[in-house]
Amino acid sequence: MRTLVGTGGSDDSLLALETALDRAEAAGDDVTIAIVENPDSPRSVEEIRGRVEDRLANAGIDAEVRVLEGDPGSRLVEISEREGFDRIVLGGGETSPLGKINIGRIGEFVLLNADVTVTLVR
């Protein structure tokens, strides 16, 4: 399966990345990691890139890493369609102090606009 993992550095998107990479190791998915600029994220694109590359090196996984500029949601949808990905994997939302799940803006846009399967990781 060709999987496009979007991460803007929020905690939930980093969890989604871990889950997608675990699955890739077990099932042999072809993973592309798209780093996007999430204004709500505490981490910079460079920081995320460093983290992602370290993780890939440690696990010995060969995955393409690219940085998407522009609106994160629409760029993810566009690339998934143009390049024939089977699935988009994203973080499943941040948890509030009370334990409520709040879906992020990127997740909402992709969920409503993608024509491929979207997985929100919890």
Partner: peptide
């Protein structure tokens, strides 16, 4: 339920209430 709370199952409920 709304936005995942309250959780279901007694053990999850206890864990959540511990926080609340």
């Amino acid at each position: 339920r709304a936005q995942g709370i309250p959780p279901t199952g007694e053990s999850s409920i206890r864990e959540w209430l511990g926080h609340i």
